[in-house]
């Protein structure tokens, strides 16, 4: 399954609305102007996501993981490499970062940022589909990038797809790139894409 150029454009536009909402929350929270943009969205079978991510992030990563339920259900993750996570936290809180493994406060900050971003995007999807999406409590994990996706594959049966979204944070002249991965069943993905197409048509 592949996204058409039209679907891809529509998804980027939609995600940018969600990111705009998240950026506004983060700016308010930190007192700094935070910009968030979606430069790129790709659709991949879950099995291939690991490979795709391994090309852009290496080693230990921090991931904020939320499960969402409703007519559209799946897993949503924000993945930052460890230096990106530390830098983001430092930029947002004005405090020098300690290694994440010993800095519980930093882990909490990253969790809150992930929570804001994931909820904003999935909330936008919910609004679009006119359904309510409910969320689990966000969890932060620090582990090897391969391990995260491995656990996603084990949890579910059946073919699943993932939207891989490059998320560019820009604040105080610094750029940090994170990766949002939204894992959906074929049915959920179908529903989402049809809604996106309808929305795109209603826009033009």
């Amino acid at each position: 399954m592949e996204l058409t150029a039209l679907q891809q454009d529509a998804l980027v536009e939609l995600l940018n609305i969600g990111f705009g909402r998240a950026a506004a929350s983060l700016s308010q929270l930190t007192g700094h102007r935070v910009l968030l943009e979606v430069p790129q969205v790709t659709l991949q079978a879950v099995d291939e996501v690991g490979e795709a991510l391994a090309r852009v992030v290496q080693g230990q990563v921090a991931s904020v993981h939320q499960i969402f339920n409703g007519p559209v259900a799946g897993d949503a993750l924000l993945i930052l490499d460890e230096s990106g996570a530390a830098m983001l936290k430092e930029l947002l809180t004005n405090e020098p970062a300690l290694p994440l493994s010993i800095d519980a406060s930093a882990r909490e900050v990253i969790t809150e940022i992930g929570n804001i971003l994931l909820n904003a995007c999935l909330g936008t999807f919910g609004n679009l589909l006119k359904v309510q999406v409910s969320f689990s409590v966000p969890h932060l994990n620090i582990e090897h990038v391969g391990a995260i996706l491995e656990s996603l594959k084990i949890q579910h049966e059946g073919l699943r797809y993932a939207l891989v979204v490059h998320a560019g944070f820009r604040l105080r002249d610094t750029q940090v790139t994170g990766y949002m991965v939204i894992v959906l069943s074929v049915a959920s993905l179908d529903r989402l894409i049809r809604a996106v197409e309808d929305w795109e048509r209603s826009q033009s």
Binding site: Q28, L29, T30, Q66, K89, L92, T93, E95, S105, A106, E108, V109, T111, E112, N115, N119, G123, G126, Q132, V133, S134, F135, S136, V137, P138
Partner: peptide, 22 residues
Amino acid sequence: RGLDASYRDALAGEVRVLSQRF
């Protein structure tokens, strides 16, 4: 401190974590 917004988000189905640092 604007935290009432988090309560409204919760009523809309979202979970809000409030970090100590922020």
